[in-house]
């Protein structure tokens, strides 16, 4: 234990407006939800933020509901909540699959969807699934609220479009209005408590409406736009030949920019991306 509890303040505002007012002070407040990232940094003595705001008690940030043509998920929704929700199973099945593949029970009881997005790790488990569901994120501050497209949310390694005074309050994904096929696979050395080394998430709607996202192979989670385009046109043309699959896979590998780190190698990540992408595409052929 290398963190010093005396070196940090932590307050728990009673409601969202009070939390946003604190953030509006621009005093470098860090938001602490379920603690599964912030407290790990704290333990290692790496938490630099002196002032923290707990939002765990803000029940207004919980809840999963259909609102209009969207499924709306509160920022404090935990992995466990996602797994247990029949609405998520119906409208964001990839997200449910991603939540099931994350950590283990105790972490899933505390880790939140908002935290997983805000922490902005390229190895985060939910974001690849959120990307293929056309997720939007609602950012709120004392001065207003805005919806941003999640596909443009991450701007670089651990950087996002969020302003310091903003808080993620909820996310939404369009309701599934047509049959959807989806694919989610995370690779992480062991089967539980694993940090992703490569993750691929994909969905196909209306036959050729394609989303493909990669995790852990670039500074951020990314949509594989070229692959999506090529795959969509191949599907639209009604022919996804073995040759086409190989060609698209090669394009996908070129879109990934994996690196060496203590968890794996760029070479491994590249080859697994290739294999998983092929597996993913073949599953859409079948």
């Amino acid at each position: 234990m290398r963190g010093d509890a005396h070196a940090h303040t932590l307050v728990a505002p009673a409601d969202l407006d009070s939390a946003l007012a604190l953030l509006a002070d621009n005093k470098g407040h860090r938001v602490l939800a379920g603690g599964t990232d912030v407290m790990v940094a704290f333990e290692r003595g790496l938490l630099r933020d002196a002032r923290l705001i707990s939002i765990w008690q803000l029940d207004e940030l919980r809840g999963i509901a259909t609102v209009g043509r969207h499924l709306t998920i509160g920022a404090l929704t935990t992995y466990t909540d996602l797994i247990e929700s029949s609405l998520v199973a119906e409208h964001a099945p990839t997200l449910a699959a991603a939540a099931r593949d994350t950590a283990a029970v105790a972490i899933r009881n505390r880790g939140t969807i908002g935290g997983n997005i805000a922490n902005a790790s390229p190895a985060a488990d939910l974001p690849p699934a959120l990307l293929v569901h056309d997720c939007e994120v609602e950012l709120r501050s004392a001065s207003g609220a805005r919806w941003v497209d999640y596909a443009g949310f991450h701007t670089g390694y651990k950087t996002t479009v969020m302003r310091p005074d903003e808080l993620i309050v909820r996310v939404r994904v369009p309701l599934v209005d047509a049959p959807m096929r989806h694919f989610y696979r995370k690779v992480g050395t062991r089967r539980a408590q694993a940090i992703s080394k490569v993750c691929i998430s994909a969905s196909v709607r209306r036959g050729h409406d394609v989303r493909i996202a990669f995790g852990s192979v670039a500074p951020t989670v990314v949509r594989a736009r070229i692959v999506e385009r090529e795959l969509a046109s191949a599907l639209a043309a009604g022919l996804l030949s073995t040759e086409a699959v190989s060609r698209i896979v090669a394009l996908g590998v070129a879109e990934a920019r994996p690196i060496d780190d203590i968890r794996s190698t760029a070479e491994y990540r590249g080859r697994v991306t290739r294999n998983l992408l092929r597996e993913c595409l073949m599953s859409f052929v079948a």
Binding site: A5, L10, V11, A12, L32, G34, G35, T36, M39, V40, E43, L52, S54, W56, Q57, I107, R110
Partner: peptide, 8 residues
Amino acid sequence: SCLVPALQ
């Protein structure tokens, strides 16, 4: 419990 700040 190692990841829960007392206040929460």
